Amino acid sequence: MPQPPDTPPLRVVLADDHYLVREGTRQLLELDGHALVVASVEDAERLMAAVDEHRPDVVITDIRMPPTHTLEGVAAAHRLRERHPALGVVVLSNHADPDYALELFKDGMTGLAYLLKDRVGDRSQLLAAVRAVAKGDSVIDPVVVEGLVQRRARQEASPLSRLTERERHVIEGMAAGRSNAAIAAHLHLSVSAVEKNVNSIFSKLGLTDEPAIHRRVAAVLAFLAHPPS
């Protein structure tokens, strides 16, 4: 039997309307004592109540649950983060459409993960995502990232190669989750100079027709998929 880790296990709440999926995920997570499932529920409302009661470190939720089987998991993620800003959330989905990921990340990426459901069987990837969101990092399934990059590239071989050295430093700051002000302080620039570089990045990546937050997330996803050398 595996020995428990020296550090306390991460406390997790699971949400999926299929019992076998919840139970299988629980067993995977608890196999070596690195995670402890404190509640397992079948819909978004019970998920909200379970988080309020147990105050877990991380939530793992299906993207679609009763009653409408649309985007309950994403909506629950947003509501939970409003109530518990430090909570990590992993959303599991059958859909590689980048628009679903953009909807999850529309208010920011910190502590959020979007994984395809077939990753559940890969215990190492699932645990890595749980650990990442628990400490405030973000995770996006590579298949989803690739789909977004292909759509945004607009048939250019490598739009990131068009960025200047300064723009590359700015997008690195964006990928690290820094605000424009924080990027300015880090690079010893004015905030207005950073804003100009950010707008130039959006233009070169073909993101000029998107809402501001979607452009920022899309640019970061493109960078994470193919960081400039």
Rank of each mutant, 00 (worst) to 15 (best):
M1P: 11
P9I: 14
P9R: 05
V12P: 02
D17Y: 02
Y19K: 11
L20C: 04
R22W: 10
E23T: 04
T25A: 11
L29S: 01
L31H: 11
G33A: 09
A35V: 10
V37E: 02
A39I: 07
D43N: 15
L47P: 07
A49F: 09
V51D: 11
D52E: 14
R55G: 14
P56I: 04
D57V: 07
V59E: 04
I63S: 15
M65E: 07
T68I: 04
E72R: 05
L80G: 06
E82Q: 15
R83L: 13
H84D: 12
L87D: 01
V89C: 10
V90P: 05
V90S: 01
S93I: 04
S93M: 06
H95R: 14
P98W: 12
L104E: 07
F105N: 06
L115H: 06
R119Q: 14
G121I: 03
A132S: 14
A134W: 06
V145L: 15
E146G: 07
G147P: 03
E156R: 15
S161E: 12
R162E: 12
L163A: 01
H169D: 12
H169W: 00
A175Y: 00
G177H: 02
R178I: 00
N180L: 00
A182Y: 04
L187T: 07
L187F: 07
L189N: 02
V194T: 07
F202P: 01
T208V: 14
D209W: 05
A212M: 08
R215Q: 15
R215E: 14
R216P: 06
A218P: 03
A219H: 07
L221K: 03
A225S: 11
H226P: 00
